[in-house]
Design a binder for these strands. Structure first.
Lengths: 114, 114
DNA sequence: CACAATTCCTACTTTTTGGTAACTATGTCA
DNA sequence: TGACATAGTTACCAAAAAGTAGGAATTGTG
């Protein structure tokens, strides 16, 4: 115990979690994982996230793309088409996230009491 | 896909994750899990979290206690002694969190590039 | 009596995050 | 011509989170 450097242990995992621990990222990842085709367009997601503003969805997707969890593909058409999907890294995260969601469902009542 | 209600799916899990997805909670849980005795005092934790202010540690512990993830026991001594430990619910969360931490360690370089 | 140790709390300020609304570009359809 | 659709961006504002600095309570010790 005495030889644990908290800074060392805390920082890496915090940096990782901060990539998808915000208000909307998890939902985006979850929706992309759920999609039949593995692909979703901007406004398609918007329809599932009615209380998320355009700005926040855009920002969230940009962050996830920068973290290499989501792949963004632009088709040079008019009107523009942009397709989002999970990267390999993003897919590898899903089992862990789904386990977390399962835990959440199971223990919701114990944890969220107010 | 078409029958997923985003509000329904998003809210519960977000509420759960918000209980330990903040800046310090994960570290507290991790430290308590790591402790030999399963118990840590306030200033003991402080020594491992040098960049966390007193206020934030206090606040974090209060939140974790309210979420029934951490147990707080006060001993009526002078100077006061307060011991923190994981609850049963808290302990049940640890395997999931450790898996997340493992994923984080493995994929850190892919995700954190800036 | 002053001080130290322990576990906080409170007021104040700064930083980060999120929301609203308006704007852009471009080609299609009526 | 002008409204529509898509995938955003930008400016501005409000709210929430976090940091700083100081105080409070208790009581045994020098």
């Amino acid at each position: 115990m005495a030889d644990i450097k908290a800074e060392y242990l805390a920082c890496p995992i915090r940096q990782v979690i901060s990539r998808f621990g915000d208000k909307w990222s998890l939902l985006v990842l979850f929706l992309l994982n759920r999609s039949d085709t593995g692909v979703l367009r901007f406004n398609e997601m918007r329809r599932f996230m009615t209380d998320c503003s355009q700005k926040m969805l855009s920002q969230t997707l940009k962050n996830l793309e920068q973290s290499h969890l989501v792949h963004r593909e632009v088709f040079p058409e008019v009107p523009p088409r942009v397709e989002y999907s999970l990267t390999e890294t993003g897919r590898s995260l899903m089992p862990v996230l789904l386990a977390l969601i399962e835990w959440g469902k199971e223990h919701f009542d114990e944890v969220v009491t107010d």
